[in-house]
């Protein structure tokens, strides 16, 4: 593998608008239920003050993808740039991958009885374009990045957020810029 592409998400800038979720649906006209990308609110209990912070997650194109490891029909492949691609033609809908993924990102499409997931818009990337979700993020909170040591050494770049599974499981290709808290003068 020559490199590992992934996402960098900035919770300070993410306003929780779900534009990324819907841009993905717009691009692929995915049925209503499967959510390749999903925006989550960070649990308020994990912070000392109320946060109203969000993060957006799709497939993390892990360095050690569990989905790929457990799939009995080799529906998953990992490209040279690190993108984990799922091939619906091979998929038999056994759901092993949906159980194996610690992030719950492979999604079952109950109408088609197959799994589907984010393939990091590889056709757009091959065209020199940004993934649809990244291109759509209005405040610029979601970026496509190369996961490497230079990135990890930057201040403020985190490998995980409170409440997420341990990155040791699959070495996900996602990094975070965590929430900063302002001063709150509240009456409650």
């Amino acid at each position: 593998m020559s490199k590992q592409l992934g996402f960098l998400h900035n919770s300070e800038k993410c306003v929780g608008c779900r534009g990324c979720e819907m841009a993905c649906k717009n691009e692929y006209q995915i049925d209503a239920a499967p959510q390749w990308r999903k925006v989550f609110q960070l649990h308020e209990e994990d912070f000392s003050l109320p946060t109203r912070m969000f993060f957006s997650m799709a497939c993390n194109h892990c360095a050690h993808p569990e989905c790929l490891r457990v799939c009995p029909v080799e529906a998953y492949t990992k490209r040279d740039d690190g993108i984990v691609v799922h091939d619906p033609n091979r998929c038999i809908g056994c759901r092993l991958c949906t159980m194996a993924c610690p992030y719950d990102r492979p999604q079952i499409n109950s109408a088609k009885k197959k799994v589907e997931k984010c393939n990091l818009c590889y056709q757009r990337i091959d065209n020199g374009e940004q993934p649809a979700c990244v291109a759509a993020c209005i405040p610029g909170a979601l970026e496509l990045v190369e996961i490497n040591d230079i990135l990890d050494q930057k201040t403020g770049v985190l490998k995980t957020l409170p409440g997420l599974p341990s990155p040791k499981l699959t070495t996900p290709s996602i990094r975070f810029i965590g929430p900063k808290q302002g001063k709150q003068i509240r009456r409650d």
Partner: peptide, 16 residues
């Protein structure tokens, strides 16, 4: 109330 915008401000002031 503390909104998603308030969370991104330097300071949030809650007004009755």
């Amino acid at each position: 109330h503390f909104s998603a915008t308030a969370a991104r401000a330097h300071r949030y002031v809650q007004v009755r």
